[in-house]
């Protein structure tokens, strides 16, 4: 028996959400009294250091085809059978979700995507997942010999529980790809929205796209990622990948600023799992205040610059 975690390295670096799945796998393996094995395309110290988050054995493979989920499914599946793994842990990102579905079929496994906590293994095997875009939580009972779980970001607080582990190589050369990569484009510098801990989001109250300077400045001072409401993305004021809500990206950062956003049910659905919510709106009756921890009633063009000043003072102190 073992728990197998798939940890993707990008340019031989790991994201925080990847450390989270390693820790999740390590905690689960303790709970089950088994070993935590990490399968990764990373190498060197960077990969060895996954031991800090609880990896006990690290299998490293080389591949030019990390974009191909069919190929990766074969690699992970081979590692599962070689190591007698009974649980596979993935990140609940675009790649992890694709892999979760494929692996469930390939391994004839039970699957849940977007787990928000460690499984309860006292009586069966149950995992919580958020449903209805955050409006509810469901407890899934997984009933098969092998279980596949993708873990939602920010579901587990990071903790260093172990030390670096030496790598063992894993041969993935037999698995070729039929999908060719033309190009990868990444926005450098900012944390992608689904992984961000701090988010500054703005809505139609901004009036026009040229007014976004104060939002960018506030996000800059905080080191936050920017987001927006759907009409703002639909009218092209902001790019689509900033659209949060029920039909955009669902997020659960530590801190969410909602500026000039009314708080429609479809917007709240994607953001109400944020730990702390701050609402800035000139309308004291705006529904968002009911979903907020802190609120400021006022004109955002007045409030936001004041907030930026106070934050700068705080950062300098």
């Amino acid at each position: 028996m073992s728990v197998l975690v798939f940890a993707e390295a990008i340019k031989n670096q790991y994201k925080k959400s990847t450390f989270e799945v390693v820790l999740y796998g390590a905690r689960l393996s303790k709970q089950l009294g088994t070993e935590c094995i990490v399968l990764t395309n990373g190498n060197g110290d960077s990969a060895s250091n996954l031991g800090v988050y609880g990896a006990q054995k690290i299998l490293n493979f080389e591949s030019e085809n990390m974009h191909d989920n069919r190929m990766l499914t074969k690699v992970i599946s081979a590692a599962v059978s070689q190591n007698g793994s009974t649980v596979v842990i993935l990140s609940d990102n675009s790649k992890g979700k694709a892999l979760a579905g494929r692996l469930a079929i390939n391994l004839d496994a039970a699957v849940v995507s977007g787990a928000v906590a460690l499984p309860n293994t006292n009586d069966g095997f149950k995992v919580h997942k958020s449903l209805f875009s955050g409006k509810a939580v469901g407890s899934y009972s997984l009933n098969a010999d092998i279980k596949v779980i993708s873990v939602a970001g920010n579901s587990i607080g990071l903790e260093e529980i172990g030390q670096a582990v030496s790598l063992e190589s894993f041969d993935a050369s037999a698995h070729s790809s039929t999908v060719s990569l033309v190009e990868t484009k990444r926005v450098e510098g900012t944390v992608p929205l689904p992984e961000a801990e701090l988010v500054v989001s703005a809505g139609r109250g901004m009036k026009a796209p040229e007014n976004w300077g104060i939002i960018d400045e506030l996000a800059g001072v905080l080191g936050a990622t920017t987001a927006c409401s759907r009409p703002v993305a639909d009218t092209g004021w902001r790019p689509h990948h900033e659209h949060v809500g029920q039909t955009g990206i669902a997020i659960k950062p530590n801190l969410y600023f909602a500026i000039g956003i009314s708080g429609a049910i479809q917007h709240l659905a994607g953001v109400n799992n944020s730990k702390t919510i701050v609402v800035i709106n000139k309308d004291p009756e705006a529904p968002f205040f009911k979903a907020a921890d802190y609120g400021v009633v006022g004109d955002l063009f007045d409030v936001v610059p004041r907030l930026i000043e106070s934050l700068k003072k705080f950062k300098a102190s």
Partner: peptide, 11 residues
């Protein structure tokens, strides 16, 4: 769409 960017692929 991937987190923080895009991958353009052919199949």
């Amino acid at each position: 769409e991937i987190e923080g960017g895009v991958e353009i692929v052919k199949a």
